[in-house]
């Protein structure tokens, strides 16, 4: 017969937990910490082979990256593309998400399946035909072209996430508002939307980040109006190492801010979007 855990066993368990946590933290944070160090380290320290941890820090590579390599333009483009993507995907996706969460209608399962299928499909392969189409439309090599393509990529996710978030807001509130004199549209904007806002905001940032990070489609669709990842991919190979680290660091900042803001929604949101 086995006895229940004694204090000794609990203590050992606690120590093991701490060790595992330590390993996890080291494994996941080291690359981040190191690239932050390298982003600010002076090039001379970097090329000094016996200097593991640099001692001289500088902003000079930020300056040259921004202005000589015109990264500021790329950053601006990236932000524009990401914002347009975010807005566009919400304007188009939110009504569909609402329909999925509030109505039962023939063909609903088919539509849901269709969206899931587009989610699974390797959308990157569409970059080639899209380039041809955009060239014909005259929006090739513009922020619009990239935004339109990115919107197509994030739209299925936005629909699924927003429908699940809206389902989380009880219909009762909306019905109560309609009983007390609001129209359905008013009820949505005055009752449901404010209640769902935190979750929806998180998914909006989510859309922003996906667009900010996307490199393949952006590289193919643009020549001069490159987003930051595309710009780095194109120029990184040809520039000195310390520029690469600074570039990598700049790209990582929004991601870390993002994760911090949506940490409460993390598991549910990714759980939905990847299912």
């Amino acid at each position: 017969m086995k006895r229940q855990k004694t204090p000794m066993v609990l203590k050992i368990k606690q120590v093991i937990t701490i060790i595992i946590v330590g390993l996890i933290v080291i494994w996941f944070l080291t690359p981040l910490v190191l690239i932050t160090i390298s982003a600010f380290a002076s090039p001379s320290d970097y090329y000094q082979i016996d200097k593991v941890i640099p001692t001289h820090f500088t902003l000079s590579q930020f300056k040259s990256l921004f202005f000589e390599l015109e990264a500021w333009k790329a950053i601006l483009t990236s932000i524009k593309v990401a914002v347009v993507t975010m807005l566009l995907s919400f304007v188009i996706g939110l009504p569909a998400g609402y329909a999925l969460s509030r109505y039962i209608f023939p063909g609903k399962n088919f539509l849901k399946l269709l969206i899931l299928a587009t989610r699974m499909f390797p959308l990157m392969i569409l970059a080639i035909p899209l380039l041809i189409i955009f060239m014909r439309m005259g929006v090739s090599d513009s922020i619009w072209g990239t935004s339109l393509a990115h919107t197509a990529m994030v739209l299925p996710m936005i629909i699924l996430i927003s429908s699940s978030i809206l389902s989380g807001v009880s219909v009762d509130y909306e019905e109560a508002a309609m009983i007390f004199g609001l129209s359905r549209i008013q009820a949505f904007f005055k009752i449901t939307l404010p209640l769902a806002l935190p979750g929806l905001a998180a998914s909006a940032i989510f859309a922003f980040i996906i667009s900010w990070n996307e490199v393949f489609v952006a590289t193919i669709l643009t020549l001069t109006n490159r987003t930051l990842p595309a710009h780095i991919l194109k120029t990184a190979m040809a520039s000195p190492d310390y520029f690469k680290f600074t570039g990598g660091f700049i790209m990582a900042i929004p991601a870390m801010v993002f994760i911090f803001f949506v940490r409460r929604h993390l598991v549910t949101m990714w759980g939905i979007s990847l299912k």
């Binding site: 946590v21 996890i24 933290v25 996941f28 944070l29 690359p31 981040l32 190191l34 690239i35 980040i209 900010w212 990070n213 996307e214 490199v215 990842p229 780095i232 991919l233 990184a236 690469k244 680290f245 570039g247 990598g248 790209m251 990582a252 929004p254 991601a255 870390m256 993002f258 994760i259 911090f260 940490r263 993390l266 598991v267 990714w270």
Partner: peptide, 19 residues
């Protein structure tokens, strides 16, 4: 710990490659 593990979720492949 959950938060720390999740950080790479939002990182682009470009950024990760550079790291």
């Amino acid at each position: 710990v959950l938060y720390i593990i999740s950080i790479p979720l939002a990182l682009s492949d470009v950024s990760a490659a550079l790291m």
